[in-house]
Amino acid sequence: MKIPKISVRALDKFYGKQERRVHALSKINLEVAAGEFVTLVGASGCGKSTLLRTIGGLEEYADGDILCNDVMVDGPGADRAMVFQSFSLYPWLTVSENIRFCRRLKYKRENLTSSDVEIASGRADALVELMGLDHVKHSYPAELSGGMQQRVAIARALMGKPDVLLMDEPFGALDAQTREVMHDLIRHVYLLEKTTVVFVTHDVEEAIYLGQRVVVMAPRPGRIDAIIKIPFDTSRQQDLKLTPEFNEIKRSILQRIRETSGIKTDLEQLAKLTRVG
């Protein structure tokens, strides 16, 4: 059997102390195969971002195991590059310098041969090309639109050839039209780079369109509620979002999220209020 890229076993995580303690993640079990695109979706407070950040090594965990390539995760590392929603680019570096940022770091410099340097610089150019950043590669991030900035962030994360790309609502701050473009771009990049991707979003449509598996999470305590295998093949196009099959999956996921996150009771209460009025 092949070793999964990421393996989360019986992960428990708490925030705070004693009676103020919040059960952020409860008994999480999840395996992500090499080359798989997994999306985590759920209402706010369900722990999807926490789970992603814990896999990224940015959050402590006390109980359970997280393994990447069968090695225990203990802190962040270049094997698990992360893309954030915003404010992660370095505004004092140009686009091309941002993408090459990881090459300033020691672990990259130490075991480097001259042919590596050439390959790396070729890779940076290829990523610039792939992301459609050629015309802005000497610009600074502040001169770019939000969508273009996220392209830079993705290219920068891919530069170090990470085993897994962790994406924390990377398109959450973008407008709907730009987001559609980014969806097709990230799918294209994923098919080309053959990376493993774990992608967090609150947008169910996004989760289905991008993922091979959608992990639906529920709050209080943060847990995995359901895992849905998406039956569409890799060649997906925007119109897929309008098909009955797609909408059927969307409906069932939305229903689970409403049921588990308490949105339903809110609606009932609203109905009560209007009756009183």
Partner: peptide, 25 residues
């Protein structure tokens, strides 16, 4: 924080985060 955390997930050590990110930003 994302600027710092991004560097850490690219393999930056503590001192590299201070030198390449915090002091520059």
């Amino acid at each position: 924080s994302p600027a710092i955390e991004a560097a850490r997930t690219m393999g930056a050590t503590n001192s590299e985060v201070v030198k390449h990110v915090i002091l520059r930003a």
